[in-house]
Design a protein around this nucleic acid. Structure first.
Lengths: 330, 330
DNA sequence: TTGTAAGCGTTATCAG
DNA sequence: CTGATAACGCTTACAA
């Protein structure tokens, strides 16, 4: 592998002069520039950024740490991050934590060993901040820490709107299936749910709350439970896309018609690219936009252009009403 | 940021001794080991792998270059790659080419600047091999070059089986929608289609072939065209998941019932995690397994444990018959 | 305009 | 068992 030294030798100049040509900074005579460019081509020289990064103390790389890139929601967000980062000359390394604090810890360590310049992170519930030595932005989750930059969606009002929609359709007994209690997103969605219930005078009627994980199994198992609970709920609120799928599976197994026998609403829309028959009424979060804004914020921190104070960006959620929600069955 | 020097100073030893503790190699007296470990904890020392990689001439990092991580097929494959790489102490950087030769070129350059140890790549059709200075494995696509390691699925036989299924249902006029002519996967699927047609004596009847891109738009537009072509095809073969979605959209727009008025079969299954109502008859490729095997092959090349000769691993495809394919309408 | 020297953080080598 | 030295490839600071 040729180095900058080899190029310099071949062009009959000092490595420093080659460096100047490579980075387009400082003066180089036209003649030497030509010779150097020729040498680069001849040797098929590719700069080694390990040297550069070591010297410059930055890698032009950001880390994106999410729970599971298999979830289309994170995938979309990741594209927002990547596209934005690329536009600014940065690149991305992605880490999947699978919501495991241990995996998260190991990724944070690894990525810092790699000297990433900053983090975009969807933290598991475990404390983690003290492990980070570089700037970072928290995605999707609310943070009580008043010093942490955050980009997230307005889960409370999204959940409120979905629930209001159900109430207006006449539903009186509902069930919500959500994630862990220590998960801000789960809490906010339940809070929005509660708020709408109160507003419509439904708080004192039997409503069901199921706390589990943001995955398919949780949706599946609790839905089975819901079907056996009296008074039978007439609507299910699945608080993310995976829970919704579990819910739909369980309903289908019991041949429960949606929405004739049961209404279903959910958080997170599936990308149009992978669904040919959008069916669920959802609160759609602007995943790509979240990734984009978070990246812009982080980059402005890195360049020192961000406001002094902590930023908390809260994006609105779009309610999309489809066929899965209907009036209360008789 | 503390360095190995700082740790050494604090522990009253030489940096080299710290290095030995860090990497668990060479002898270090128990007493010094204790002191060093204490110093590491006290300073909250995190090794800088830029130094290590520069010195060792390897980064323990592999590059995965795919067309679009937004496609669940690639996402699943990526998890197979990542999990396998992690198990062996390697990490992954992902690049999206969007099937653009230019993007691919820029990624290959960038990733080599980063000194990745090897590539797993789904190449766009453009020549690219000469740009790679490190070992690599080609994924998903067939390569005529007899020196290139490849891991792919048996597209020919998968397409053959799907077509046979249609023929056995009584279909006599079919349409296939596929990718570009210079795309080995597209060609193979058409070849499998043709083979089945011949076997069932359908080659001389009017069959339709549409070459486009492996995306939703291609599926959508050609399906519209199919609906206007006489004799009307009674079955559509969509050669990947995105084309299938475009096809379904176009059919739904015209209120064509599947399978009553039109049968549809496709390549690539959607992950169970993101579909609550699997509907399409598909040829399912083992995406995770592909990623896993390709990574194992690449790692064995890197460690010099691979067979001398070029490996071409061809995985079988599973046909899953669902509701989208039925007998010919009258 | 160009080159020299030094250092970024790590580890292989070899001498002690 | 331990440490000094040099080297990995690059760029900043300074000198010419």
């Amino acid at each position: 592998m040729p180095t900058i030294q080899d190029v310099a030798k071949r062009a009959g100049v000092a490595p420093m002069t080659v460096s100047r040509v490579l980075n387009n900074n400082g003066y180089v005579s036209e003649e030497k520039r030509q010779r150097i460019e020729a040498a680069i081509r001849d040797l098929n020289y590719i700069p080694n950024v390990l040297g550069t990064s070591l010297r410059m103390k930055r890698t032009q790389t950001l880390a994106l740490v999410v729970s599971d890139i298999t979830n289309p929601f994170w995938t979309t967000l990741a594209r927002g991050v990547e596209d934005t980062a690329n536009q600014h000359g940065y690149h991305i390394i992605i880490g999947n934590t699978d919501e495991s604090p241990q995996k998260q810890k190991s990724y944070l360590l690894f990525l810092q060993k790699k000297q990433v310049d900053g983090f975009l992170i969807v933290p598991t519930s475990t404390p983690f901040l003290d492990q980070l030595r570089v700037p970072f932005v928290v995605l999707d989750r609310r943070s009580d820490d008043e010093t942490i930059d955050t980009v997230r969606c307005d889960s409370i009002s999204g959940a409120y709107e979905l629930t209001k929609h159900l109430a207006q359709l006449g539903h009186r007994h509902m069930a919500i299936i959500t994630g862990r209690q220590d998960h801000s997103t789960a809490c906010d969605r339940v809070a929005g749910f509660r708020k709408a219930l109160e507003e419509f005078g439904l708080s004192d009627l039997p409503q069901q709350f199921y706390w589990g994980e943001f995955n398919q199994q949780t949706g599946y198992e609790f839905t089975q439970q819901i079907l056996q609970t009296e008074p039978r709920a007439t609507a299910i609120f699945a608080t993310n896309n995976f829970i919704a799928i579990g819910t739909m599976l369980a309903l289908r197994e019991r041949a429960i018609q949606v929405p004739e026998q049961m209404s279903v609403v959910a958080f997170d829309d599936l990308p149009a690219a992978i669904t040919f028959d959008p069916f669920l009424t959802v609160a759609a979060q602007p995943a790509y936009e979240m990734g984009k804004l978070a990246t812009q914020l982080l980059l402005s921190r890195l360049s020192g252009n961000a406001p002094e104070t902590r930023q908390e960006i809260v994006l609105p959620i779009e309610i999309i009403i489809r066929r899965s929600s209907g009036v209360v069955p008789h």
